[in-house]
């Protein structure tokens, strides 16, 4: 069972767009000035004026002052559905509710587990956050020991940065063997790719099971671990370049020719 389910769905929006393009080419041309375009990734820096209009919403990585929207990060400019946002190129992971993270159980109290996931303060996995019913006074190490890796969802984050985790999710699970690599968290969306294209491609070609945590911890298990690691590290290194999926695909094909294609195994944990 792979845990990040990627359902390549045909975009209805795109189809609609294609239809409308034929009717209104003039309008397309007008909006192109603002559109960042698919190929050219425009890099913006803190304090750069992105747009002077009140018709747009200041999304992630931006702030509004008067009728202007400015960038507050160094990153890539995105403009989708009148929301202007900046995808950062660097920075630390800030936990958000409903994110999936990979963490390591660092110590156990009598009623909860503390999980280290690369953030300055540790997250708490309470007894109630586990699908099984746990009776009072039961040794919690039965479920998760110190040093165990878990793929968990963040259930809540308070203003004072008290982070609670939950395992009551279909995707959440304990990770057995395999290895964990660390990348910087702003690069995670690139590793996953648009609707998971990148990660599913790496999974298919290398035959590895890969779990990506939003915190930048990536768990890999399979025969081609080293190759998958190389590919992911490459994504991290060239994350700001366009046409990356093809580049990684070519790289994997070339490397796999030397080794031979991965053996197809049944679904495994």
């Amino acid at each position: 069972m792979t845990n990040i389910k990627i359902i390549p769905k045909k975009d209805k929006k795109e189809e609609i767009k294609k239809e409308t393009v034929d009717n209104s080419t003039d309008k397309e041309n007008k909006t192109k000035d603002i559109d960042t375009g698919k190929k050219a990734n425009k890099i913006v820096l803190p304090g750069d004026e992105l747009i002077k209009s009140i018709d747009y919403i200041a999304g992630h990585g931006t702030y509004r002052e008067g009728n202007k929207i400015y960038s507050k990060l160094s990153g890539i400019l995105k403009n989708r559905d009148h929301v202007i946002s900046v995808i950062p190129l660097a920075g630390k992971y800030v936990p958000k509710a409903r994110d999936f993270i990979i963490g390591e159980v660092s110590y156990i109290t009598f009623s909860n587990w503390k999980v280290d996931f690369g953030y300055p303060s540790e997250a708490t996995l309470p007894m109630l956050g586990v699908p099984e019913y746990i009776e009072n006074g039961v040794d919690l190490t039965k479920y998760y020991k110190r040093g165990d890796l878990i793929f968990a969802a963040i259930s809540s984050v308070t203003k004072g940065m008290i982070i609670q985790l939950t395992m009551k999710d279909k995707k959440a699970r304990k990770l057995y063997s395999g290895k964990v690599i660390f990348i910087s968290s702003p690069k995670v969306p690139r590793v996953i790719g648009k609707e998971g294209t990148m990660i599913s491609m790496i999974k298919n070609k290398t035959g590895c099971i890969i779990n990506v945590g939003q915190n930048g911890w990536i768990w890999i298990k399979g025969d081609n671990e080293a190759l998958a690691t190389k590919a992911i590290k490459m994504v991290e290194q060239y994350s700001h370049k366009s046409g990356l999926t093809n580049m990684i695909s070519d790289f994997l094909d070339k490397e796999l020719k030397k080794v031979g294609p991965p053996e197809k195994k049944g679904e495994q944990r």
């Binding site: 820096l45 803190p46 304090g47 990585g61 507050k72 990060l73 160094s74 920075g91």
Partner: peptide, 11 residues
Amino acid sequence: LAHAGIPMKSL
């Protein structure tokens, strides 16, 4: 600071 990805109003 900008390189570290810390959100800033301006340089």
